[in-house]
Design a binder for these strands. Structure first.
Lengths: 217, 217
DNA sequence: GTCTATAACGAGATAGAC
DNA sequence: GTCTATCTCGTTATAGAC
């Protein structure tokens, strides 16, 4: 998720970076081409050369965001073995977005769903479906390992988790209190761990969440 | 003096009703005075007589929504005795909004928070603070009764719950699947009930949730 | 690729008649 | 209270020079 950016990116990339941040902080209906143009220091007309319409720009952003998220998920699969560690790494993806004073791009767009062009709606549904698919597999793995204890089908728990994390971010931003997300995330994770594994992991997990002033691992 | 007919509400109320629905379905930045005017069948200029600015209209709507929610909470306090029943009634408030094909007004505005006029931001924070206060008391009551089993401070569980319900609504709407909210809500409630109480209540609770659009058991 | 200039439209808001 | 008419500004988008 966090690729360090080259200092001198090409214009298209700079546009995408600025537009992404605006979309995550103000929503698709909350910014204009003029806002992007001012930050990138080109004219609105030049913007249209790179992205003919705002809908096209929006679509590109969802796809770029989804691809980055997908990469992050694959990375978690490579670097973490057991389900609880993977789950914590998943939650950390959200926490990093929030620490950057942003809302999840797709969570933000979910609120505006009814007003979005159809291609953006489709890309949005795909993002959430992919997330829930990945989480479902993860939860099933944890159940087989004995490291997680679900009381319901994995796909239901996965859907709940995505919703709770997105909602937690949303309210943390509205109340200006990022710790609200951290607390909610910790609670959600604790409820999924099997009682035996929970007591063994608790010390480590609490330390990990409490020891972070800002970003970076 | 008495006005028993909701069919012939006064203009101000009709404006508020239409604007409220637009705000819940499209967001504050997703509708205009022209949209309201077309539905209420008056001109934009007439709208400005009732609400001088859009920000004023938005503020009035948040306050009306908050007052109605507060009334509903008091009603729950009167009509339900034990904490689990009150909790289910609370979740039902959200479910009813969703069944009307709307997002929670304040959950929607939470996404647009950064773009809202300051008075609306303040009213929004007050709504969530009141919700969490009420839920916190409820959870503490349940803990004392022995009907709920929390693993964390009540105020943290309350904040998580509000976020999870708002997020659940958001994603249910984006994926066009209201059952996604129902499933998430059931899971959240089940995790709060004490193991003893849970087995006694499970039959009742499942029946209640499964009654409408029939899904799973 | 980026610019100037402008089109075409919709937004929130106001003046003043009735 | 509601209307017509209008204002001003911001929006997305296009044409054509450089």
């Amino acid at each position: 998720m966090s690729d360090p950016k080259p200092a001198a990116a090409n214009t298209t990339t700079r546009i995408l970076d600025v537009a992404e941040r605006l979309m995550q902080t103000r929503g698709f209906n909350g910014f204009s081409y003029a806002d992007i143009a001012a930050e990138v220091r080109i004219t609105k007309a030049s913007l249209h050369y790179h992205f003919a319409t705002k809908a096209e720009l929006g679509c590109t952003l969802i796809e770029r965001y989804s691809a980055a998220f997908e990469s992050a998920l694959q990375r978690i699969g490579r670097e973490r073995a057991d389900a609880p560690a993977r789950l914590r790494a998943y939650v950390k993806l959200y926490a990093e977005v929030l620490a950057d004073e942003r809302m999840c791009l797709c969570g933000m767009l979910a609120a505006e769903y009814a007003t979005l062009p159809e291609p953006m709606q489709r890309a949005l549904r795909a993002f959430f479906a992919a997330n829930e698919r990945w989480l479902t597999q993860l939860l099933e793995q944890g159940q087989q390992e004995g490291s997680l204890a679900l009381r319901v089908p994995a796909c239901e728990a996965a859907a709940m988790l995505v919703g709770a994390l997105e909602g937690g971010m949303l309210l943390a931003r509205a109340s200006g209190d990022p710790a609200k997300f951290t607390g909610a995330a910790r609670l959600l994770l604790a409820q999924l761990e099997s009682p035996a594994a929970a007591s063994a992991n608790r010390r480590v997990r609490v330390a990990r969440f409490a020891a972070r002033p800002a970003r970076r691992s």
